[in-house]
């Protein structure tokens, strides 16, 4: 599904060049659960942005479902993000002015095919599924961190994507809440076969995935199967 070939990304700050990725290649198959690990500044977020079609690499090629992403126009990239990809961010990134339900519905506002009735039906269903059936009309700021991240997950799921990209989804949560969120994400893979790519610093979380890609200074340092034993250990 994801085919990354010798990708580099160089940020230019004035005359200074910051190489965030220096030649990264890997494949991720449909239905895989992958953790990306590495120190702060090693290029994890840069890589996620490229996989998520939010940004283009400086060189190298990226094929998503066989489609060369570099060949797409800005608005076509937006469409790919809308249809195929769900994002979960460390900062939740909910819009404080909108209700929980309207936040979850946001991607559908840019889809244009569904009636408001269908949109409401879908968002209600998904919010109930992530345990927020009672909070749909609240503002995000009235919710706890864990609940806010659930809204973000609902938003990522609303357009039935194939790929969920989560950049340190538990980074702002305590370990118990973080474990709940991880269970929710892993459940999506187990029940619906979604492909998951999760950036994390936490080895316990990485251990729940199937495969760990380690980055260091913009290069892949290791790419191996996760230790199998702990996968079932965490339960909520």
């Amino acid at each position: 599904m994801i085919d990354v070939r010798d990708i580099t990304k160089i940020y230019r700050l004035g005359s200074v060049e910051v190489p965030a990725l220096r030649g990264v290649s890997f494949n991720i198959a449909r239905g895989e659960v992958v953790a990306i690990m590495g120190q702060s500044g090693s290029g994890k977020s840069t890589l996620m942005n490229i996989i998520g079609c939010l940004d283009l690499p400086t060189s190298g090629e990226y094929y998503l479902d066989g489609q060369n992403v570099a060949a797409l126009e800005e608005d076509q990239l937006a469409e790919v993000r809308n249809r195929k990809i769900g994002f979960v961010f460390q900062q939740f990134n909910l819009l404080p002015r909108l209700s929980v339900q309207r936040n979850a519905e946001l991607p559908l506002a840019y889809d244009g095919n569904l009636s408001q009735r269908e949109i409401t039906r879908r968002s209600s269903e998904i919010l109930r599924a992530v345990g927020l059936g009672e909070r749909m009309h609240h503002r995000p700021t009235e919710l706890s961190g864990g609940q806010q991240q659930r809204v973000a997950i609902a938003r990522a799921l609303i357009n039935q994507p194939d790929l969920i990209l989560a950049d340190e989804p538990t980074g702002n949560l305590d370990s118990h809440t973080g474990a709940e969120i991880m269970n929710l994400l892993l459940g999506l893979n187990r029940d619906q076969g979604l492909t998951l790519v999760i950036v994390t610093h936490d080895p316990h979380i990485a251990a729940q995935t199937q495969r760990i890609i380690r980055l260091k200074d913009g290069l892949i340092e290791g790419d191996e199967a996760a230790p199998q034993t702990t996968t079932q250990a965490v339960s909520v």
Binding site: D75, N82, N93, L106, Y110
Partner: peptide, 10 residues
């Protein structure tokens, strides 16, 4: 964020 979830320029 709106662009990330699919908003086009228009």
């Amino acid at each position: 964020l709106r662009k990330a979830v699919g908003a086009k320029r228009q």
